[in-house]
Design a protein around this nucleic acid. Sequence first.
DNA 1: GGAGGCCTGACAATTTGCTGACAGGTCTGC
DNA 2: GCAGACCTGTCAGCAAATTGTCAGGCCTCC
Lengths: 270, 270
Amino acid sequence: MSILVRDADIRRVRGLSCDDSSFAPQVADTRSVPTPQHSSTVLVVEDNPDLAYGLRNSLEIAGYTVAVAGDGVSGVEQARELDPDLVVLDLMLPGMDGYRVLRTLRDEGRAVPVLILTARGEEADKVLGFRLGADDYVTKPFGVLELLARIEALIRRTRHWRTPTAAPAAPVIERFGEVEVDVSARTVRRQGERIELTPKEFDLLIALLRRQGRVTSRNELLRAVWGYSASVVSRTVDTHVAELRRKLEPDATAPRHILTVWKVGYKFQP
Amino acid sequence: MSILVRDADIRRVRGLSCDDSSFAPQVADTRSVPTPQHSSTVLVVEDNPDLAYGLRNSLEIAGYTVAVAGDGVSGVEQARELDPDLVVLDLMLPGMDGYRVLRTLRDEGRAVPVLILTARGEEADKVLGFRLGADDYVTKPFGVLELLARIEALIRRTRHWRTPTAAPAAPVIERFGEVEVDVSARTVRRQGERIELTPKEFDLLIALLRRQGRVTSRNELLRAVWGYSASVVSRTVDTHVAELRRKLEPDATAPRHILTVWKVGYKFQP
DNA sequence: GGAGGCCTGACAATTTGCTGACAGGTCTGC
DNA sequence: GCAGACCTGTCAGCAAATTGTCAGGCCTCC
């Protein structure tokens, strides 16, 4: 893994003017250079300090504004606050792992491009990452120049729809029956009263909400919420569905929203 | 390199409805169901016939419309004519190489996403590819599922500026007589009133619907709905047909939609 | 070390579907 | 046109499959 790359190379990748002479304060330099493309913000969510430092450095040299989050929770928070142009996301994070970070962002309706950067190179991992809404997936060890090129490509691809519209970022709230779900705050109220859902319960609820009106098999729910594909052997999904019903349905024994479809799966109805 | 992948996996990558029961009618269904997501067109520019064939196959199973070009010049031409949603581009091409194809497309102002697929895995090659305007870069040997996931991600990312309105998954509804069937919700209404069908009944109804207008033998229905082929010894199919008639026909003794064809089987008529 | 979340596995409660027989229709050969 | 053979319609009960539910135990996080 070559974190050590000449600055000139890094600049070149971004297509900045590259006269090799400058060993001057690069950061200040690139900032003052009137880059035609207004400086984009990149959020790096990475718990390994060394790697985070290296990335920040490379990205700043390439002319980006960089923020670093050391764990999943602060990653989500900073993504909300900064509204970055791209997120570089490690999967192995303490606490909230990368998959969950990604899912949370997407559940909140954030379309920010996400590049997953991880040691997990199994094809299944990659497929899962893309399914959850990732835009690129780079495995360690990686070349910095390639990473920068991919970041550049992603930002290039997504720039035009960011500039024209200044999103007012309305809170995403879903309602059904006497329940309202604030997706970004991950809170649920029922008759105005706060209901506590566990993370899995909330994810499951969102997954059902996103598929409302359609029958969803346990397997699809497993993949969407738990992240793996396996023939359903245990009662995990059912257990959580039962818990959701208990917490959200007026009468858990006669559900009106979270319905069972025999031999197929579950279906959410508003 | 695993070109050989189960169809079910390939479908799953596109997020089509997927079910645990391996041989159940649901899987067969997905093939004929008009997928709500309008079929995207993928242009494959690849001179190796075997690889091109394999790609076309996988992509078609995944639900894409596929065009193949065997060299760079016809690749550019087809890109102009078809205006595809994505281009899979090999670099090593006879005549006009991939880089030049890419540059030509971009010079013409075509913003179509391009995924480079090549054996050249040097970082410098990748960086060059991205600089020329590629959106992704996959090196051989590659996993088909990963490639499909990347293609899906790219098309997902670029879909919105091709289709201005993002419709929230309109339900697929089939109608006949006074009955309407919502396939994805697995619900049936008759004169607007909800009719409860058991799983087998619903599957049988779908199977008949899919074969409307032509006679279907009990054996074929058995295979389609029950998943196994067996000479019909029991009255199973008939029983379920009777039940369907009772629930859906205005007069079950004089069916108008689910007709008996003597000594042959059944026929559905809208 | 405690608490909460999550999964597992068993048991109970439902729902579904198959079987097998009988009744009623339809067809074929005469 | 008739009789017998054959095919389809129908029914109800039991067996099997599926889901609801719960408590115990493992694990992670605080």
